[in-house]
Structures are given as structure tokens and as C-alpha cells.
Amino acid sequence: MATNQQRREAAKRKLERQLTRRAERARRRRIVGVGVTIGAVVVAAGLVVILATRGDDTAAEGDAADASGTPDASANNTPASIPTERVAAPERPEPLPDPATCEYPESGQPAKEVSPPSGESVPAGGTVDVTLESTVGEIPLTLDRALAPCTVNSFVHLAEQGFYTDTSCHRLSTDGLQMLQCGDPKGDGTGGPGYSFADETFEGLNYGRGILAMANSGPDTNGSQFFMVYGEAPLPPNYTVFGTIGDEGLTVLDEVARAGHDGSSQAGGGTPHTEVRFTDVRVAAA
């Protein structure tokens, strides 16, 4: 039988073993903690380097490239490519009555003071040449009365009253739909002339490079806003085509598109990085 002295010594040895194990566990925890801390510092440093690099790419304004040296088209919302071939100008399967009668009912508050055009005896044949003089160059247009007499009548009327002068194109789209939208003096896509008019669309209507068409917010909601297609435009035939864009104008639009946009539009695209402001709109004498 163990004596009291032996029991005390055994208890002491047991306590010493427990203290040793606790010290070892504490030492291991400290080692792991240091390792985690070092790892966190390394990760944080890596993130700082990455963010700093991204900041430099942003400051470069379009000079971002991948490892192969190819420009990153998405860095500034620029088009990956722009087709060079025009689409054929559309033609109505059946001519409209000439002259046409148009209606321009009141719709909202005008973004600029302007009266609605007359809708009586509107020509439905022939073309009208218009030049959009802008801060980035001239954009010549040919308006086709046979395609959309009421639209051409409204556009010419607004141009002659100075509605489009000193207005900026507020939306550029470069991905999928490639177009520049203009015609709102407010510059945010909500402005119009204070009247509307019906769509002048037809089955088989296609869109693509060189086409001039009306923007809308639904059936028969045309006003003053229009869009110029410089590339692809996979759209349903819901937008009135009323003319074409000259070669000089397409060159201007290509340059604007390649500068990209800020991605701010919920409808797609955004404000162009290169401002397009109309300094004058000239309508050629009939």
C-alpha cells in the first residue's frame, strides 16, 4: 500500500504532466495564431497590389489590356467590333397615301417651348436632307417621307424651330444594340416636345448600320428622341425608321462609340465619354 508521501509525489507528477500538456497546447495555439496573422498580412498586401493596379488601369482611360496585349473592350464599355457594311435602306411593301394626314396630340410638358406641327396635307414622297452640326463633326441625314411622312414632318418642324440645337446625345450603346440616342433637351432620356404621334412601322422592318429611327417608350409614343444605328441592331420592328445616315456621319459615330460610355443607363449603355452636342441643325431647302 502506498504511503502518504508516495501519494503526494504521484499527485505532484500528475500535476506537472498536466501543466506541461497545457503549456504545449498554448504554445501550439500561439504558433497557429502567428501563422494566420502572417497569412492575413500577405493576403491584404496582395489585395493592395491588385487594387492599385486596377486603379492605374482606370486612370489610363481605355489603355487596359489582357496578358496578350489585346485591349480590353469592356474596360470603358467600348464595342468589341463595329461592322463596316451598311444594311439596305428599307422600303414599304405598299406606298402610303400622298399626301398623308397626321395627328400630334398633346403629351406631357415640352422640354423646350415648341408648338406641334400641322398634320394637314403632309407629303408622303421624296426626301429631305438634314445636317446635324455637332461638337464632334457633321452628321448628314437623309429623311425619307415615303417611309414615315408624319415622323419626317415632325423632325423637320422641330429642327426648324431650334428644338434640337444645343442638345446633347444622352445614351450610347455598344454591346448588342449599337446606337447613339439623341433628341432630348433635358439630356436624361425623359424629355420630349409636349406632343406624340403614332408609329409608322411595317412588317419586315430591319435595323442596322446606317439606319435612323425613332426612340419610344411603347406603341405610338413617338416624340423628339431618335437613335442613329452605327452597327448591330437586333430589334423587333417596333421603331419607326425615317431615314439614313451619311458616310461622314457614320465615321463620326464610330469614333464616339470607340471612346465608350459610362454604363449609367438602366436601359443599357450610358452617357458617351465623348460629348455629342448639336450646335446647329440645318434643313436643306426643298
Score class of each variant (00 low, 15 high):
264 S>A: 13
233 A>C: 13
59 A>F: 04
127 T>G: 03
111 A>I: 02
206 N>R: 15
113 E>K: 11
72 D>M: 10
20 T>S: 15
75 A>N: 05
202 F>M: 10
31 I>G: 04
219 P>W: 06
86 R>Y: 12
193 P>D: 14
44 A>N: 06
216 N>I: 01
103 E>V: 06
251 T>L: 10
150 C>V: 06
105 P>G: 07
147 L>E: 05
219 P>S: 11
79 P>V: 05
175 D>M: 03
86 R>W: 03
101 T>N: 10
25 R>Q: 15
247 D>R: 09
160 E>G: 10
213 A>S: 15
40 A>D: 07
153 N>T: 11
148 A>Q: 04
242 F>H: 03
250 L>I: 05
198 A>M: 02
179 M>T: 14
217 S>T: 12
255 E>G: 11
137 G>Y: 07
59 A>C: 00
223 G>W: 03
60 A>P: 01
15 L>W: 05
205 L>S: 00
180 L>E: 00
130 V>H: 00
134 S>I: 01
258 R>Y: 04
5 Q>Y: 11
235 L>F: 15
244 T>S: 12
201 T>S: 09
181 Q>L: 12
225 Q>I: 08
47 L>T: 08
224 S>W: 07
92 R>W: 09
40 A>V: 15
35 G>Y: 01
134 S>V: 06
43 V>F: 10
198 A>E: 12
176 G>K: 13
47 L>D: 03
203 E>N: 08
208 G>P: 06
31 I>V: 14
31 I>W: 03
220 D>C: 07
48 V>R: 08
274 T>Y: 00
112 K>W: 00
236 P>C: 00
113 E>H: 11
141 L>H: 01
276 V>W: 00
134 S>G: 06
136 V>S: 07
36 V>S: 05
286 A>W: 01
244 T>A: 06
200 E>D: 12
88 A>Q: 13
117 P>M: 07
266 Q>M: 12
12 K>C: 04
157 H>S: 11
130 V>L: 05
214 M>I: 07
184 D>V: 02
234 P>E: 15
107 S>D: 15
110 P>I: 06
215 A>P: 03
53 T>A: 13
27 R>M: 06
78 T>Y: 01
68 S>V: 02
98 D>P: 08
221 T>K: 05
272 P>H: 04
197 F>T: 10
137 G>H: 05
233 A>Y: 02
23 A>Q: 14
22 R>Q: 13
38 I>Q: 05
187 G>H: 03
203 E>I: 02
40 A>P: 03
81 S>N: 12
89 A>R: 08
41 V>Q: 09
114 V>T: 15
116 P>Y: 07
261 H>W: 07
234 P>L: 08
17 R>E: 12
5 Q>G: 12
28 R>V: 11
77 N>V: 00
259 A>Y: 03
21 R>S: 07
89 A>N: 04
125 G>I: 00
150 C>Y: 07
